[in-house]
Design a protein around this nucleic acid. Structure first.
Lengths: 222, 222
DNA sequence: CTTTGCTATATTGTCGACAACATTAGGTTG
DNA sequence: CAACCTAATGTTGTCGACAATATAGCAAAG
């Protein structure tokens, strides 16, 4: 897929990645309690590494812990979605601004090439795009900001929660071609080194995306 | 001081708070290695709670860990300062926008009252302001956003790092009266429920603040 | 004298056991 | 019968010991 390769060295790493995956993909249900002993047997490691994994998950707001009581997976809610996307709008907007300022010409050329590939994919299949392509696009701009703080917050923190909402609410459908146009305009602004516009367009893009998910969410129960 | 009262229940909490304080205030030097056994004897707790404290500090970007090697306190650098303040500009700008939209009339009245107190303090002593008052002001707007994600990121994450830079670079000096005017304008925008302007002004305010610190930083060695 | 490989040491990672705390079930009293 | 207190149970928090890994120092070969 893309270069999002975080490699696990220690057992706590592996358990953290696995548990995060299971939560994001709904194998471990949102809102459910995380029993340390139970997970310990399930993943075949000691309670210590389970505790470390849970602590890391707490740091990215995927689980909530109460002292002497335990940890629960966060519950998905419309309010939580709004909060999350507001933060995302703010941070990725800044990322786009900084990318326009800090990406190399080569990186921008690569980004344009990526868009062309996506353009073909949209015309042909019309499907593949949303999951992999969208993530890839945003990921490149985030890295293009060259701001390590920002990168860490988005890649390690926000993005897995975003994916959790998307996966568990069954996002995959349309908004493909319109989103593609928005991506295109953002890259144009970056190519012109217009950080101000790039930020604005990215913020709008994420706002629309939020509205789209909310619209799908409204009629259903949560 | 203010209502930033995080209460420690478990031993890991206490150790985390104490260690964070020691790092932020420079008792534990920036860039230094954190030996688990050493800290274990120093704080009189087992290595397990030290490890948990270090993990939490890693989550707020105050220390960096490498597998099988250990943890180091982050080094303060001009680049790190810029990265940090860009993130802060982005998030607190959004906080101001949301505060204009979500604070109650009473809360806004309180905020105005706070500014009046500060106005007096600036006229009389001219000192007290910067540390406590500034933090208090920003803190209220962050809470006023009513966005729990944003609040958590800023209060638990960003702010201690900001304080670390300020304390260890000996910030306390001037920029009092000009900063006060900026605060005043921000509150006016919030009072008018003008989120767009509030965000803009907050971002400028933080940008100026960064430039001010950088100016003080430039001639010295780091 | 430099470089390479090994050994010794120290540090981190992992584990199982014990202690402290919260919760629930049951009994007693008003 | 209701409310409160108490005891039993299960979970989390903390600890010390062991295993695995990295680092530094030393020895030997080129």
């Amino acid at each position: 897929m893309q270069n999002l390769t975080e490699q696990a060295i220690t057992a706590a790493d592996k358990t953290f990645f696995q548990l995060r995956k299971d939560i994001v993909e709904g194998v471990v249900l949102a809102g459910s309690k995380l029993s340390e002993t139970e997970l310990s047997t399930k993943y075949g490691v000691s309670r210590a590494v389970i505790r470390e994994a849970i602590n890391r998950l707490e740091a990215c707001h995927i689980v909530e812990r109460k002292a002497n009581v335990g940890a629960r997976v966060v519950s998905l809610s419309p309010e939580g979605l709004v909060d999350l996307y507001q933060v995302r709008e703010s941070l990725e907007g800044m990322a786009a601004r900084l990318a326009a300022q800090n990406m190399s010409d080569d990186e921008i050329a690569d980004l344009n090439a990526l868009l062309n590939v996506h353009s073909q994919d949209v015309k042909n299949h019309g499907s593949y795009y949303q999951e992999a392509g969208d993530v890839d696009f945003h990921y490149r701009i985030i890295l293009g900001s060259k701001n390590n703080h920002l990168i860490a917050m988005l890649v390690n923190g926000i993005y897995h929660l975003v994916r959790m909402y998307r996966v568990q609410l069954g996002m995959s459908g349309p908004r493909v071609s319109t989103a593609f146009d928005e991506h295109k305009h953002i890259v144009q602004a970056i190519s012109n080194r217009d950080g101000e516009l790039a930020e604005m367009l990215m913020r709008r893009h994420i706002l629309y995306s939020k509205n789209n998910i909310q619209r799908k969410l409204a009629p259903e129960q949560m």
